[in-house]
């Protein structure tokens, strides 16, 4: 099977380039990650992140034939050859398929992605009805792979100012949590021409999310809450 893979090693002094690989796969190689691991067995200089190989850890996000996705749950059989693999767009490349995710995590951290509740915790669990808990579905499952944020043109233009879909999804995850008491502060923080309002509903995020989540909808709900509290 034929691949064309982005290569760059700052240590070598060479320029970034696409390298062609033609590799015989085994019948057990079903996902793109299997193929990459097989290539690496022959050429150990090929560099990429990977861990769980089942789509829950978020390590192996990359741009596959022009589309962001996780290598470990992308079926080889469904890919057009040569398979063109590049690092996630919009973030600095460290080496080969590895990007520097600092900016992505900085934005994630900026939404204070943790529960804020000023009351002393009860002896047992805080109560939450199944319906209230249901509100967190489609939000808490995010694996921080950055497929969405790095497919978003608004993030490409303003990575330092626009929170991006992944961060905003998590912002709403805590706004939507009945146990959280910081909704006001969270909305204040996002009421900003850049942090939230750079989202123009392009919906690339929804299109690429490997977990089938919908950041655009979460962003819409935040906007709704902002409107509600002004009227």
């Amino acid at each position: 099977m034929k691949f064309s893979i982005y290569r760059y090693d700052p240590d070598s002094g060479g320029r970034p380039h696409m390298q062609a690989y033609d590799i015989a796969l085994e019948p057990t190689d079903r996902m793109l990650l299997d193929a990459l691991v097989r290539i690496k067995a022959h050429d150990d200089t090929l560099t990429f992140r990977r861990s769980c190989r089942e789509g829950v850890c978020g390590s192996d996000a990359m741009n596959i034939n022009g589309r962001n996705g996780l290598a470990c749950i992308t079926r080889i059989a469904e890919l057009k050859e040569p398979v063109v693999i590049r690092p996630l767009p919009g973030l600095p490349v460290v080496r080969d398929l590895i990007v520097d995710m600092s900016q992505f995590f900085k934005q994630y951290n900026s939404v204070k992605p943790y529960l804020v509740n000023h009351e002393p915790p009860p002896e047992k669990e805080r109560l939450q009805s199944p319906e209230e808990r249901e509100e967190l579905n489609g939000l808490y499952e995010c694996i921080l792979c950055a497929c969405c944020t790095t497919s978003c043109p608004s993030f490409w233009w303003n990575p330092d100012k626009f929170v991006g879909p992944a961060g905003l999804l998590q912002a709403y995850r805590f706004i939507a949590d009945t146990r959280d008491q910081a909704t006001g502060e969270r909305l204040d923080d996002l009421e900003d021409p850049y942090r939230l309002f750079r989202c123009h509903s392009i919906m690339n995020c929804v299109d690429v999310c490997p977990k089938g989540l919908n950041p655009t909808r979460a962003i819409g709900k935040i906007k709704e809450l902002l409107v509600k509290r002004t009227v």
Partner: peptide, 8 residues
């Protein structure tokens, strides 16, 4: 209490 989204 830390915020774990347990089913209910």
């Amino acid at each position: 209490h830390f915020g774990m989204p347990f089913d209910r």
